[in-house]
Design a protein around this nucleic acid. Structure first.
Lengths: 369, 369
DNA sequence: TGCACTTTGGCAACAGCGTTGCTTAAGTGG
DNA sequence: CCACTTAAGCAACGCTGTTGCCAAAGTGCA
């Protein structure tokens, strides 16, 4: 359940869905081999009987099924339970600078289908919404027209910020002033007659990476044509009240440094991309590492994941360079185990998959934060 | 309730205490004038009847009492409810470099008594624990020996980090290696036979400031002999898994800048305090503002509060200087309303009061994060 | 092959939560 | 004085997780 803000009173209905979501989340983490009722009971702190009742409900709803038995330990063997992949689907749309990537995920988060299309933001809102709607329709078409089709929970859309994920409104699309303040979520929702959720690309990526990992905190640093971050704190994507969190590119790491396109001076993004343009990848990694170290120290992050086209152009050097800075900083602070740096897994569909996870998340108790 | 980690299953007992805590939190926010049952129902989302039952329990527990009636709006006037201040107390201890400050708070967070004592960390753990225990005993003595005395929930201790608030163990006390790894919480708890909670001074300050404000996110920047931060995200103190969050002083804002005592270069703390030492307060404020702007952008913070002896020496210039940097950054990013900067309220007892709040917080549903 | 033992997991009864429907209490206003 | 309005408790209820019990389904030794 959630924070102590307004309307956080919990009645029996809320309790039920909370516990059901908790069980679903553990089932999702368990993956195809499944998890037994007694393990669920142990991990939730609920009694085995409560878990039996909850899983019985989930089974009769078609979300969960039995999946064989485990080896006996001297008595009746435990029955494994697992998610029914086809019980729910979600579409994820990644609107990037020049192309649109779409994925269709099942309940377990596995990609069922993918699509790509060219994207021209200059064509205006109506055209883009139309294209997106057509692509979503075509993608969902693989499910046929029966129950599978109606299992689509909705569409998640991820794109570069700034935007407002609460209201689903774009604030600004650099280079295309006609998009200022466009209510993309509602426009697409009306067109598709499906729930739509809008979020920043970096947040979607972070959510995609957070799925399948328990609790923990990490930062996803995306270095492509720009530099941004997605933050996961205690297992939840941290967006801030205005979806502004993760603005990492214009962190100043060199007071009165070289000017940046944003009007500031000494921004990480400018220093980083400038170095890359000069072919000084190691220097770029060192700058990125400095920003990452600031972030890690400020938030006590467990893990740093790197991604984006620029990183992908020389992944090892970036990972090594950032790691070196973090290690040095950790050693100075007397921390025993430095924060690990890794290349973000997931490949080119990471953002689209994360966008789809925006709709799956509520099922598994990951509230929108 | 909390995150989806382990043991987050919610049974009826947990539900009851959650809703009770929610009601208590609203009663605390309402302060002396109190709040009516129907308002509580509206704000919690529970039915009036549920609130009646919950408040009846709280009244029979002695935590809540009726406090007059509101003006009628044409029918039976609503009855206001308020906390019973004396129903619970908590002691807060602030261990600073050279002195120890203690406060005794009642359930509403009001200071009932205060004490000060000299502190010599060089005297060793046993001596300090002894002094602290005596001071706590003397402070609690004002409650007499009856029910009031037994209403003391425990003792919160706040001191400079690094430390581990989960295990209540100090990691390092700069200048006094004999304190490395000292289990202060357990030592004091055994001595006092009371629950003890340990946290960083900046976190305690942030908690103290968070009490009485709803939801929201803010950063408390403390500039004294060092520079640290306390972060409150969505109404909860963000500590990180290792109580490391808020390490703000050694954020690098000038790559390869002047060396800092920590071994790094271009840390905010070194630049800031260096400027202050040179009498360049405006420059110090500008540097602090740069770090603050980084933090605000990264986390989408609503408010920045400044405190600490150095800030107190020229508060207006610091507030103005930091505000200028934040405003400029906000304007560049096209944000309509810049993040406000204010002097932290609360005075010299802020940290000690926050330390005491560490024990009151669970009653009001503010889980330890 | 049979029986004792272990372990799983459903059934039934139960306590306790918030909810609903209703009644009583305590005001206002004509 | 009485009709009306609003607050808040009482009683019955549905639903939650819990407890106690028992059938089901294995293992392992005689």
């Amino acid at each position: 359940m959630n924070r102590t803000n307004a309307g956080a009173g919990v009645n029996l209905l809320a309790l039920r869905s909370h516990n059901a979501a908790l069980v679903l989340e553990l089932l999702r983490l368990a993956g195809p081999p499944g998890i037994t009722r007694l393990e669920l009971a142990e991990r939730t702190g609920l009694t085995p009987q409560a878990v039996s009742k909850i899983t019985a409900r989930l089974r009769s709803d078609g979300l969960v099924t039995e999946a064989g038995r485990q080896a006996s330990t001297g008595g009746k063997p435990r029955t494994a339970l697992r998610l029914v992949p086809g019980a729910g689907h979600a579409v994820g749309v990644h609107l990037d600078r020049d192309e649109m990537r779409l994925v269709l995920l099942d309940l377990t988060g596995a990609a069922v289908a993918e699509r790509r299309a060219a994207l021209d933001l200059g064509a205006g809102a109506a055209a883009v919404v139309g294209t997106a709607a057509r692509e979503v329709g075509a993608l969902a078409g693989v499910l046929g027209e029966g129950a599978a089709r109606s299992s689509v929970l909705g569409v998640g859309v991820a794109m570069p910020g700034p935007l407002d994920h609460v209201h689903g409104v774009l604030q600004r699309v650099t280079g295309f002033p006609e998009w200022d303040g466009f209510p993309l979520r509602d426009a697409l929702a009306r067109r598709l007659d499906l729930p739509v959720v809008l979020d920043k690309d970096t947040n979607a990526a972070a959510l995609g990476l957070a799925v399948g990992s328990e609790g923990g905190s990490f930062a996803y640093l995306h270095l492509g044509t720009g530099l941004g971050a997605g933050l996961v704190l205690n297992g939840a994507v941290h967006r801030g009240a205005r979806t502004g969190a993760g603005e990492f590119g214009h962190q100043v790491v060199q007071l009165d440094g070289p000017p940046c396109g944003c009007g500031g001076r000494g921004c990480v993004e400018a220093l980083c991309l400038g170095a890359v343009a000069r072919g000084a990848v190691d220097e770029a990694a060192r700058v990125l590492g400095t920003g990452a170290a600031n972030l890690v120290a400020l938030l006590d992050i467990d893990l740093v994941l790197l991604g984006g086209r620029t990183v992908a152009s020389d992944p090892d050097r970036f990972v090594r360079g950032v790691g070196t800075v973090l290690d040095a900083r950790a050693r100075r602070e007397g921390v025993c185990s430095p924060v690990p740096v890794r290349l973000a897994p997931g490949g080119p569909h990471l953002v689209a998959e994360g966008a789809a996870q925006l709709l799956l998340a509520p099922l598994f108790g990951r509230a929108e934060g």
